[in-house]
Design a protein around this nucleic acid. Structure first.
Length: 265
DNA sequence: GACCCGATTGTCT
DNA sequence: GACAATCGGGTCA
């Protein structure tokens, strides 16, 4: 008794954002922090294959990994050889047993969340609401990981549109805007055809999914730190600024205006 | 074995 | 902003 009420009240309180902080220098005012897919700087670069991120990249705690993942490029090679690419613009850090919002809270280790406890760079993909998948990357620290929340689609947009269209429930009559392709943890899984079969795969060694270095300019974009989304029942942990995204990016799933204002102050 | 719930999304009002 | 969809995983008896 009373637990549900407590949860509801915790959810109401969730609208208070976490404190924000700036982790990189600020871009010129008035300019978008990112470019549209047609004008992406990736399209003007050399076609040679950029270096794939190795296991050493993932071997860092969840917070710095969540920040370091911003700007990196997630690549998905489909069965027919087509490659889909998206730049990571939003992440969330889950810190492990101490983190009341993490599936590994209290040191819970189950068949489902085993990937969270595997070596850094291991994928943890789980089904949520019986319909959608979410994709995490394990980090340094047992039970710690980073949730990928949004991508800027760079390559293979038509395939992404098809994957999103066919996988959406209900009538897929309305055409999707580009910014709707990957602006959410389950949307990006749909767009990149990532499902439970990717659980526990190694990002540093898999043939169908990997990460590549993003353009150097990415590290110059302003990063917002805000409260995580959808973890209202996690008490004080719900308020901690463990969500990171590029300020001004149109590809982000949820914008936290208050956190952005705090960061400017 | 039963029951409850969710790191979401899309639609409707 | 409210609400439904949908089912696997976790918890408890």
């Amino acid at each position: 008794m009373g637990q549900k009420k407590q949860r509801l009240e915790a959810k109401r309180g969730q609208s208070q954002p976490g404190t924000a902080e700036m982790t990189t220098e600020e871009p010129p005012r008035g300019l978008p922090a990112t470019l549209g897919p047609q004008r992406s700087i990736y399209f003007s670069g050399p076609q040679s294959c950029p270096a794939r991120l190795g296991s050493g990249f993932f071997d860092q705690p969840a917070v710095p990994l969540a920040q370091a993942l911003l700007g990196q490029v997630l690549v998905r090679r489909l069965a027919d050889g087509m490659e889909l690419r998206g730049r990571i613009v939003e992440t969330e850090a889950y810190l492990g047993p101490e983190d009341a919002a993490a599936h590994s809270r209290g040191g819970r280790l189950t068949m489902r969340n085993r990937g969270m406890f595997m070596k850094p760079g291991t994928l943890y993909v789980y089904l949520i609401y019986g319909i959608y998948f979410c994709m995490n990357i394990s980090s340094q620290g047992a039970g710690a990981c980073v949730l990928l929340r949004a991508l800027e689609p760079l390559e293979g947009l038509e395939a992404m549109r098809q994957l999103r269209g066919t996988l959406r429930r209900g009538t897929a009559s309305r055409a999707l805007k580009d910014r709707e392709l990957c602006s959410g943890p389950s949307k990006l899984c749909q767009a990149l055809a990532i499902d439970k079969s990717f659980d526990q795969r190694d990002l540093a060694g898999d043939e169908a999914v990997w990460l590549e270095h993003g353009p150097l300019g990415s590290s110059r974009l302003a990063v917002v730190a805000a409260a995580r989304v959808g973890v209202g029942s996690a008490g004080e942990w719900a308020q901690k600024p463990l969500r990171f995204y590029f300020r001004g990016s149109p590809w982000v799933s949820v914008v936290d205006r208050t956190a952005e204002q705090d960061a400017r102050a």
